[in-house]
Design a protein around this nucleic acid. Structure first.
Lengths: 258, 258
DNA sequence: CTCACTTTGTGCGTAGCTTCACAAAGGCAC
DNA sequence: GTGCCTTTGTGAAGCTACGCACAAAGTGAG
């Protein structure tokens, strides 16, 4: 290896897209805010279904599970869409957030890997309702190719490039085994895709300008386990040694000042 | 940071938690660090399989897709487990991280909701290999109860409390429809569960001390769409008004020609 | 019109996270 | 042992995000 010349290939956390030209019109919305907009959108849709015409930041914040000041600041990044003394018009805000997130247009999504997870995703209703249209299901296993799932026929991964090009796929979901993920990733990025949602438990290496978001079930459970352990015995067991007792006394209280 | 505290910041933005009990014990490991430990663990396991005895922070950082300084600081929160001039002993570090995360013990997990997603989760191999044992599958639909999935027989949700108590379930995965999620959540927290992994697209309301982590497929796609839109047309078009007949019809220049 | 009341939008202090850069610590050759 | 080289562990600086608290802006009654 060559230490020193490594590139932080793909951040787990989505970070700013690579080229951040400080334009005059720097409409940069903080990533943390972007991540919460879908949450607000969902809460707003719930209100809309019940016919609520307007909502205060306080009520919406409760519905979305966040602090109301944070919500107001988030929304202020989109513009000044509220009315003081009244609140926000539900329908109008839904439209504005949708537009900002790009949900007013249709996104063609392809799912690669039609195992259990891929099937679950294909059948998940939450996509279609938000402007995401599943345009293709692909798998490398001939036994699966040809199956009909959620109204689509599974195609072979040989067709990957032509499906992407032919159906204007702009987002690819990788739900393959870990071993195949990087190869699929290489092919789809090569084909021009710049947004990937990865369910495979690997760190994908992508060219600049490609966004990867990762969902990892195992990691979520491990984080829960950490907190559960904390709650259970007020901190990890103080057996800092190897099971059979090596030394390496760990005094990590030193220098731990904030 | 105290137990039970997730601070919303970035990484996989599915987090939302409840309370921050300012308990004593400043042995807190930053949440951001905890969220990355599983990543390091996976990278280390990969190295271990290939027989690598030691690894430098630089190499491990590359494998995990993070900055090496960050990795070192993260590890320093666990203790001083490296050797200057050499690096980290792979096996030893695996053990230390596992212990810190609580993976040296066995966690009984119950999955509620055996739809497409629940099945996928039940069949997902990544759990068992990390100390998570699926101890129960439950569903409210009589048509599903009795099915055998991944070696387990699906039980009716009526049995929820007895399954949790009888099999020492400490983590519950909610994979039900959104409408049922809060009810299930209430019952499992009432039964003493304090760690929940929620796949339902709702904000769960939980008592203090209960950790909820959320995975939301739709939200991930929406965040990708936002960035994709940015890349496509350098920011949303300035049609701030209602579609009033004139919507921002900017069909993104399709064609994989990019 | 004026006043009382509601709710937004935001300045600001603070806390936490990331990254740099370097001294300290250990191994290795001889 | 001595000196050189590698790599860790961490102070310190810079960013980003959070949330309080309040002025500004709007509503509605009389």
């Amino acid at each position: 290896m060559r230490p020193g010349t490594h590139r932080p290939s793909v951040p787990l956390e989505h970070r700013h897209v690579t080229r951040r030209i400080p334009q005059a019109r720097d409409r940069g919305i903080p990533d943390a805010t972007v991540a919460r907009l879908p949450l607000y959108l969902r809460a707003l849709n719930g209100l809309a279904e019940r016919g609520t015409p307007t909502v205060s930041s306080e009520d919406l914040a409760v519905a979305a599970g966040v602090n109301s000041a944070k919500l107001r600041k988030d929304l202020s990044h989109l513009g000044s869409y509220g009315t003081r003394g009244v609140g926000y018009d539900v329908q109008y805000l839904i439209y504005q957030i949708s537009r900002e997130l790009g949900l007013t247009q249709d996104w063609a999504v392809a799912i690669v890997g039609v195992g259990n997870l891929g099937r679950a995703l294909a059948n998940y209703g939450g996509f279609a309702s938000r402007g995401f249209r599943i345009a293709g299901l692909l798998d490398a296993d001939p036994a699966v190719v040809g199956d009909r799932i959620a109204g689509l026929v599974v195609e072979h991964t040989d067709e990957l490039e032509s499906v992407i090009a032919g159906r204007a796929v702009s987002i690819v979901v990788i739900a393959t085994p870990a071993t195949a993920a990087q190869h699929v990733c290489d092919r789809v990025t090569e084909a021009g895709v710049t947004s990937i949602l990865n369910f495979a438990p690997v760190v994908l290496n992508v060219p600049e300008g490609v966004d990867v978001r990762k969902v990892d079930l195992s990691i979520e459970l491990q984080i829960l386990a950490f907190h559960e352990q904390r709650k259970a015995n007020g901190g990890p067991i103080m057996a800092e040694e190897w099971p059979d007792g090596v030394e390496q006394v760990n005094e990590r209280s030193i220098g731990a000042s904030s």
